[in-house]
Design a protein around this nucleic acid. Structure first.
Ligand code: MN
Ligand code: MN
Ligand code: ZN
Ligand code: ZN
Lengths: 149, 149
DNA sequence: AATATTATTTAGAATAGTTCTTGATAAAAA
DNA sequence: TTTTTATCAAGAACTATTCTAAATAATATT
């Protein structure tokens, strides 16, 4: 049951005079073919296997272009390096403090994420983010101790 | 109607063999006497008015000590510099993309912030954060354009 | 096609927030 | 007092990210 339904190497329109270059395509494919949330450096490492000449700067450029185009998401967890997510469906993130992974959490149908807060009246709401932190099921099971990196 | 009820210069126990030093006290007082969410540098500037000899490194140290002790909160918004918050009551944050301020939002009584997400079964939940971004009421009123910093 | 324009890539330099190192200072304990 | 431990402060170091500038590639124009 893949979260990402688009098949690999699909040609995507970036809009705004932007081109879908080989580099951008490979970065995009890497994000679409994994359910995890790699950092720019991790994307770089995975991309290098398909395109060994690519540079880290280009990976940063591509990730930014794709994120601004709205076809991938940038996910920030505290002060840690940005992570990237190919799951465009509205969802929340769970961050395991033990193994440091970030995983998607589905939203409940019919329950607004903003339902628990008193939105400031007169404000224009653009996005509501829900982030959960704790210990993931696997780390709970294996009874790992807190990852003091 | 002050959000922070403790009076200024209250002596606080930090636990764990930590001392409430003059520097920590001043940093703490600065956070408690404002409802905004200053960055470390902003705290540094405010603290300097009371204690001109303090260093930025010490402000960072103090903020970290106070945060670890749990008497102030560190608030992170995307890739921006960390902000600090003296409001210990459970609350969410609103981030205005126009004027870049961060303000507290109260939680609705009796509505769990985790209510909108499908928590991973077997996970140990430590904290659920709700963050709202958009345009604050004042920026909506004055019809400001987006702050392209 | 040839030329001109624009976008992209790349390596390395630069930046910014934060952390680390180290020696001095101060407080607490013995 | 002496010893131990914690803290401070200045600057160096670190790291994720962005910027710079030159080379390359794609696209548009003639
Ligand atoms: Mn995700
Ligand atoms: Mn707050
Ligand atoms: Zn885990
Ligand atoms: Zn505003």
């Amino acid at each position: 049951m893949p979260v990402h339904k688009k098949k690999l190497s699909e040609k995507i329109d970036l809009g705004g005079g932007h081109r879908m270059t080989p580099q951008r395509q490979v970065v995009y494919d890497v994000l679409m073919s994994s359910r995890d949330h790699p950092t720019a450096t991790e994307v770089f490492i995975r991309v290098q296997e398909k395109m060994s000449s690519i540079s880290l700067a280009t990976v940063y450029n591509c990730l930014d272009t794709l994120a601004v185009a709205g076809i991938v998401k940038q996910v920030n967890v505290d002060r840690e390096p940005s992570r990237y997510c190919g799951n465009l469906a509205p969802h929340a993130h769970f961050h395991c403090e033990t193994c440091a992974t970030v995983m998607d959490i589905d939203l409940k149908d019919g329950v607004e994420p903003s339902g628990s807060v008193k939105l400031p009246r007169g404000a224009k709401i653009q996005k509501v983010e829900v982030a959960v932190r704790g210990q993931c099921p696997e780390c709970v099971r294996t009874n790992k101790r807190k990852n003091i990196s």
